[in-house]
């Protein structure tokens, strides 16, 4: 079974007005189960629209959204169930916190689901643990903690709903390198422990390459590439043409290729680049 599937989906904003804009243009994307998938593209490439369609916030103008094999819009009454199936964390989610304590804020989602008190308590603590919030933070006001911690509370609030699929829109936006590595690392761990499907939206190729199993690249309302990181970065030149920044080491390999040295350009981490370069250099160590 696939985690989520978009079939011939289009989304048009402000249809029949002068401000009409096609955000997503007749696309087909399949998100497989039990992995972390990166959805990459520019602002305006349609990636955020896709995210909101996966959660049923937006209804496609045409086409079908299938979540775990079931059509989301078949009966709009059941929409809520689909929302619980696919959790969505918006960009800068810390601005949605509202409760008196961190605990209550994380419990908001599970409470809306009508869960029993004990189940809520268990989920809140589990979710807090996943994002790395200590017990002592739970009783604090969400407005008295640091920006990075707020972000974690907001993510925990969605994780606590136990979604089978978790979609995160730019989870690391605005964070410094330390905060970014921590949050992306936590999300990766969460995926591996729960075997759920995590879809991360980002415009950073470098980040996504490090934390995702597969990538989907969107450009001008359509997916232009999908596959493993190696597969995507082996087409680095196309990525550059689409105006997307490839990781520095990929770029370095392309430069070497341009200079006439035959190196594999589908590398994207320093480790791999080192291996590849040692291969061409013959591996001998000159002292």
């Amino acid at each position: 079974m696939t985690a989520a599937e978009l079939k011939n989906v289009s989304y048009i904003y402000s249809q029949n007005t002068p401000f009409m804009k096609v955000a997503v243009d007749n696309i087909n994307i399949t998100f497989e189960e039990n992995m972390t998938i990166g959805l990459i593209g520019h602002t305006g490439s349609g990636k955020s629209t896709v995210a909101q369609m996966l959660n049923g916030i937006l209804r496609p103008t045409s086409g079908d959204v299938l979540i775990r094999g079931k059509n989301m819009w078949e009966s709009p009454k059941k929409l809520k169930e689909f929302r619980y199936l696919t959790g969505l964390v918006f960009q800068y989610p810390e601005y949605q916190l509202f409760e008196e304590t961190v605990y209550k804020d994380i419990a908001f989602g599970p409470k809306n689901m009508g869960l029993a008190e004990e189940a809520i308590d268990r989920r809140v603590r589990e979710a807090a643990n996943f994002v790395g919030l200590s017990e002592s933070v739970l009783e604090k006001s969400p407005f008295d903690i640091s920006g990075g911690q707020k972000r974690r509370v907001a993510i925990a609030g969605v994780i606590a709903m136990n979604p089978k699929n978790l979609v995160l829109d730019e989870p690391a936006a605005g964070l410094d390198p330390r905060g970014r590595d921590e949050i992306l690392g936590r999300i990766r761990e969460y995926q591996q422990q729960t075997h759920s499907t995590v879809i991360m939206i980002s415009h950073s190729m470098e980040d996504m390459a490090l934390y995702c199993d597969k990538l989907v690249v969107m450009h001008e309302s359509k997916p232009i590439m999908a596959g493993t990181c190696e597969e995507v970065f082996s087409r680095a030149e196309e990525l550059e043409k689409a105006g997307l920044a490839v990781p520095q080491v990929t770029k370095l390999m392309m430069e070497l290729n341009n200079r006439g040295y035959n190196v594999n350009t589908s590398v994207y981490t320093v480790e791999e680049a080192k291996k590849e370069l040692l291969r061409v250099l013959g591996g001998e160590i000159k002292c």
Binding site: F90, Y95, M113, G157
Partner: peptide, 16 residues
């Protein structure tokens, strides 16, 4: 715009 965004975010958390 912000109200729209927050409403959507809370909808995603099961608000009705």
């Amino acid at each position: 715009e912000e109200t729209d965004k927050i409403m959507n975010a809370q909808k995603a958390r099961g608000s009705d």
